[in-house]
Structure formats: C-alpha cells, structure tokens
Design a protein around this nucleic acid. Structure first.
Lengths: 146, 146
DNA sequence: CTAGACCTTGGAGTGCGGTCCAAGGTCAAG
DNA sequence: CTTGACCTTGGACCGCACTCCAAGGTCTAG
C-alpha cells in the first residue's frame, strides 16, 4: 500500500487551491461548514482532498445564491450518509423562485430606468429649480428637463 | 390667507406619511440626507411638506438601487440650486449597467438551476453515497441521481 | 393629576460573509 | 542561529441601512 503519510494540505494551501483566503477556511470551520481537520504535532491544520471537494461544493452552492446556513444544512444531511438531494431540491426550487422574482424586478426596473434616461435628453435644466427632480421614479414625474 | 402656522409634522407623522419608521428619518438626518428640521419649543422636530418630498425622492432613488451616499450627493447638488440631472444621469447610467449585468448573471444562473433541477428527477439516490453531490454547479456533475 | 403616547439623545445591535489584527509558536533556508 | 514565511487563537471590525434601547422630557385625554 502507499504509505498514507501524504502530508495533508496546510490551511493556506487548501485556501489557495479553492481560491479563497485562509481566514475564510477557518471561518467555515467555525461556522460548522468544514469539520475540524486533523492537526500536525505542532497544531497546524492538515487537510485531505475531501476538504477541497467540500470547499468546492460550498462555492458551487454559494454561486447559486444559497446562504451558508442552507449549505450547512445540506452538508449535515450528507454527513449522515444520506444523499442530500431531497433537501437540495427544495432549496433549489425555492432559490429558483427567488431568482425569477429578482429577474422580474430587475427587468421592470431596467425598463423604468431606460424611460427615465430617455426623458432626460442631454438635459439643460433651468438652473435653479429646487423642489423638482429627476429620479423620483414613482408615478411619472419628468419634472427636470424641458 | 391661511395663517402659515401649519404645525409641522412630527417625526412619526412624517415617517408614517412616507411609510418608514421614525428611526429611519432620524437616521437620514444624521446621514446628511435630510436637513436638520425646525424644532418646537420642546425640542421636537417639526417638518414641512418639503421634507416629505425629499423623503419620497430618497425612496425613489433607493428603489433604483442607488446607495444612500449617492443619493446624498444628488441632494447636495440640488441644494445648491443647481439641477442635479447631470450627476443623476451618470448615476442612472452606471446603475443601469449594473442592473444589466445582474440580469445577465441571474438569467445564466436560472438556466443552470433549471438544468440541475431537471437532472434530479424525483431522485432516488442510493442511500449512502458520501463524497458525491447534487449542486456543485461547476462543470456538469450530476453525480447524485441514477 | 395621572396615565400613556409621544418626543429627545447617544450608542449598541442586527444580518451576512467574511477580513484583519496582535501576540505568540513553528519550520525551512541560508 | 537568524530570518522570514507560515501557523495558532480569540476577538474586533467592515459595509450597508437600518433598528432598537435606555433614560429622561413633553403633551394630551380623562
């Protein structure tokens, strides 16, 4: 057998491999997302490649917009040996609904902003007109130009 | 004429009129978004309708996603008597670009999530399969189902 | 006159996900 | 043996926009 003395990754190596900072790795440990790793005689954290997988999973889930608390839940389920697909699917669907809502909101916003930008051409405003405004955004108030 | 002793709004009245909390109004004052209002003999803040306009403007700008610091800049310009259209237009365009980028990001994300949701049908996972996963999201890894 | 609803202030806390710090220990190169 | 790069810990701090708190003052209805 290969002697299993593979000298685990130190925290900075793991962090670099995943593209995060050492502090972030330690933070995840404190937050319960990464298990406490083995330690060298000197007390240094020593990670195996499983930790990198886990870290990458966290990043993937985070990219979807899941919060660390959700991700922790998923990881906890997995750690029981159960596949976390079921909770993951729920989170996924919930998050998809959120994303859809956000897209809709932003599209509406974008349209509104475009209309606004139109309404102020290259805009020469009569110098002192305090009290009126450009972006009150609410109910059509192109009070500024023309 | 109506005697102009219109008894200005107290902070809670202004806040209610705008749909925010009194603390928020005071916070805006501290943050330099609302000018220090007149005070009654007892030291109570007393607002006129201009404050409500201003507050509504802040809300409109905020709805566009502008940060309070940006809004303060706009308000500061206006307070000189100059129309803030020019800075407003810059902020508007910058923010539009941000919104566009965010929309694009979310659309890509949504597509990815939809593909993922497809990939886990109603998903019966072989009970203990730790190490593999559902949402690592990175490079196509439907490791969980089937 | 008293109860209760409002007002004042400065400062602390919230949530989220980190990020930085100081004081001290460890390790490898030169 | 020294230098410098790493590691350890607990805790403070960041940004953002609030939100809440305590301790005290004021106002108004009954």
């Amino acid at each position: 057998m290969t002697t299993t003395a593979v000298r685990g990754l130190r925290v900075a190596e793991l962090a670099t491999a995943a593209g995060v900072r050492p502090d972030t790795v330690r933070y995840y440990e404190r937050a319960g997302l990464l298990p406490a790793p083995e330690r060298t005689a000197a007390g240094y954290r020593s990670y195996d490649s499983g930790a990198l997988d886990r870290l990458r999973f966290i990043q993937g889930a985070q990219r979807l917009g899941l919060r660390l608390a959700d991700i922790r839940t998923l990881l906890t389920v997995r750690d029981t040996g159960t596949c976390p697909c079921e909770p993951a699917e729920q989170l996924l669907r919930r998050r998809m609904a959120e994303v859809d809502a956000e897209i809709a909101r932003l599209l509406a916003l974008r349209a509104e902003m475009a209309a606004m930008a139109d309404a102020l051409p290259s805009a020469e405003c009569p110098p002192p007109s305090p009290g009126t405004w450009c972006p009150p955004a609410g109910g059509g108030d192109p009070s500024c130009p023309s």
